[in-house]
Structures are given as C-alpha cells and as structure tokens.
C-alpha cells in the first residue's frame, strides 16, 4: 500500500501530478507556500513546468496560457492572492479554459493574518471576478481529500471546460495525515479546441470577447446551461448520522471534522443530531437541504467567517425551518465546547 504521512499542501500537489498536471504557475503566500515548494520539486521532475511568477496576476494569466495550450495546469494561493487572481479566473471562465486553483484560506480582510479562516467562501463560490460565471468548488476536510480532490479537480475542469477550485484553509493545508495514493492517471481527454501550434489547431480561437450583445448573451446562456448541468450532476456531500437527525449541523472543511466529534458526543447523550457536509460548495447540495427541512427542527451552520455559506443554506431552506449561525473570525477556530454549548442553548429555545 502506497501510504505516506504528509501535509495537506504537499498532498494536493502529488495528487495533481498523478492526475497529469503538467505545469504550475504561482506566487508565494502563507499558508499556501508549501504547495509551490512541492510543485517546484515535482513538476520539473515529472516532465512538466514550474515557474514562480512575478505576481498573482501574472501567475493566473500563465495558467490561462497553459490552459489554452491544452495542458492540465494549476496554481495556488491564499485570500489576498486569490483577490488578485480574480480577473484571470473570470477570463478563464469566459473563454472556458479548464484550470485548477487551490485556495488555502487565511484570515481577512486586507492583510488579515495567516491563521485559518473561511472568509473566501463568497469570493470563490459566487464567482468572484466580473461577469456571470461560476467555479466548481471542492472543499476537502482531510489530507487524503487534498490528494483525491487534487485529482478530481482536473477531471471536472476538463469535463466542463471550467475553472475548479480546491477551497481549503490553513488547517488542512498545514496538517499532516496519512494518505493512500491512487494510481497515476494514464488516459487524458483529447482537447481538440486547444491551441497547440499545429496545423490541426491553426483555426482555433480562445477568447472571451463578444462585441455583439446578442452573441454575448448567447455565450452567457450557454455558460448558464453548463452550470445547470453541473448542479444536476456534480453535487457531492457527506451525510453523517443524518437518518433520524432532528438537528442538522452544517459546516465545510475543517469545521466538518469538529462537528463530527461533537455529533458523536451528543449522540452519546441521546441527542438526535447529524451532519450535512457539502463537499462541493458549487454545486451546492440544495436538494438535500430541502429534503432535510422535513425532518429537522432546526439547522445550525458553523463557519470560520462572518457567515457566508449560511446565506446559501437559508436560500435552500427557504424559511421552512429556522437556520442559525455559529461563527468565529480572525483565525479563531470554534472549540467543541463552544459549539456544544450553542447546540444546547438552541435546543432549549427552539
């Protein structure tokens, strides 16, 4: 068994290389830098390219170029760097270029700090740059998933010709856990649309400009249809002890791990509580949430931000049941005790 004990930030690179990632363009930032360190080591060694770009903006545009060239390409950053990349991500979405972006979230706004936060939910899940687009967003909660989603991200990116984020936080990026590695991917999709500097691709065009309003509207409609298919087919979630749950806890990434421990404790005391963990943040598990409104007394969403995913939960619940938020910010991680107390408080009042 090819098992290894390693950091989340390293696992995502190894997963990417196994998935056939050929190039990495990035800029250093804490707490994502180990991704660049690993990429600098492994991309050239596996016959690919690593370039430390002059800026986050340049990095995402190098990604744009490599994606246009038909490569499996990735970049990574953290909040402030992701803000800078947004222009390029919008262009990738507009030109339908598949690429993988890892965001190891840190505290914000502004320079904030380097402690783990989840404040990039809105800027990543809602699009983030200009225009009518969506990213596919995967939210791992373990080092194993950093590897697995590093691979899955490329598959989805190519399948839908769309940017895919692996949205994680400083905890998952920095922590070490055992990882069992899958076999290297050996079959890659043929990208007949790409620009390869060959006679066959000499009539190809990668662009996001459509001057005519009708043309641009048609292009946007096509994108929206694609997002609708993604919403139909690619929702991924983890249901933990939800079958008879009357209290539905929701959290993504590291929070879902804390919530699992809490659920075990509460179940031991006879409380019917379960976890719905969205693995894909876009597409969001709206249908599952709607189903759960039938059995749930209330929902409690726990986040390490000012309450960003809770908006999506409220949209899906649509007023049928109460939705509460428990959140911490600044890089503070809610303790099991805090969350337990919050559940008990809500049980008394609801």
């Amino acid at each position: 068994m090819a098992k290894q004990f390693l950091k989340g930030n390293e696992a995502v690179v190894k997963g990417a290389v196994l998935a056939g990632c050929q190039s990495y363009y990035g800029y250093p930032i804490t707490p994502a830098s180990e991704i660049a360190h690993a990429a600098a080591l492994y991309l050239p060694a596996s016959g690919g390219t690593f370039v430390q770009a002059e800026s986050e903006v340049a990095a995402i545009n190098m990604v744009y170029g490599a994606a246009a060239a038909g490569e499996r390409v990735m970049t990574a950053s953290s909040g402030p760097g992701i803000s800078l990349k947004q222009e390029g991500v919008s262009y990738c979405a507009g030109a339908e270029l598949p690429c993988v972006i890892v965001d190891v979230m840190r505290g914000g706004p502004g320079l904030g700090n380097i402690a783990p936060e989840q404040g990039d939910y809105n800027q990543v899940v809602k699009g983030g740059g200009h225009g009518n687009y969506k990213n596919i967003v995967l939210a791992p909660n373990s080092v194993q998933e950093m590897c697995d989603f590093g691979m899955l991200a490329f598959e989805l990116a190519d399948k839908y010709r769309n940017p895919v984020y692996v949205l994680t936080d400083g905890f998952i990026g920095q922590m070490m856990e055992p990882v069992v590695f899958p076999e290297p991917v050996n079959q890659f999709p043929e990208k007949s649309w790409a620009i390869k500097g060959t006679a066959k691709t000499a009539n190809n065009l990668i662009t996001s400009i459509e001057l005519d309003p009708d043309d641009l509207e048609r292009h946007n409609q096509k994108l929206q249809q694609k997002y609708a298919i993604i919403e139909e087919q690619e929702v991924r979630l983890e249901a933990y002890r939800l079958n008879d749950a009357e209290i539905v806890l929701m959290g993504f990434g590291i929070i879902s791990r804390i919530l699992q421990t809490i659920i075990d404790t509460q179940r031991g005391m006879g409380v019917k509580v379960g976890l719905l963990r969205p693995i894909t943040l876009f597409p969001f598990p709206k249908k599952k949430i709607a189903e759960l409104t039938k059995q749930a007394k209330f929902f409690l969403v726990v986040e390490m931000n000012n309450g960003q995913m809770v908006d999506d939960v409220r949209l899906a619940v649509a007023g049928r049941k109460p939705v509460y938020l428990y959140n911490r910010m600044g890089g503070n991680v809610p303790s099991e005790k805090e969350i337990n107390d919050e559940i008990l408080k809500l049980m008394r009042s609801v």
Binding site: T49, A53, A58, N61, V63, A66, A67, A69, E71, G197
Partner: peptide
C-alpha cells in the same frame, strides 16, 4: 497579460 499567457503557451508548446 499577453507576456504571461505567452509564457504558459510557449512552455507547453
């Protein structure tokens, strides 16, 4: 951003 995109393209091809 053309020189950055060119970097990605040339490195690939």
């Amino acid at each position: 951003r053309a020189p950055a995109a060119a970097t990605g393209l040339k490195r690939a091809h």
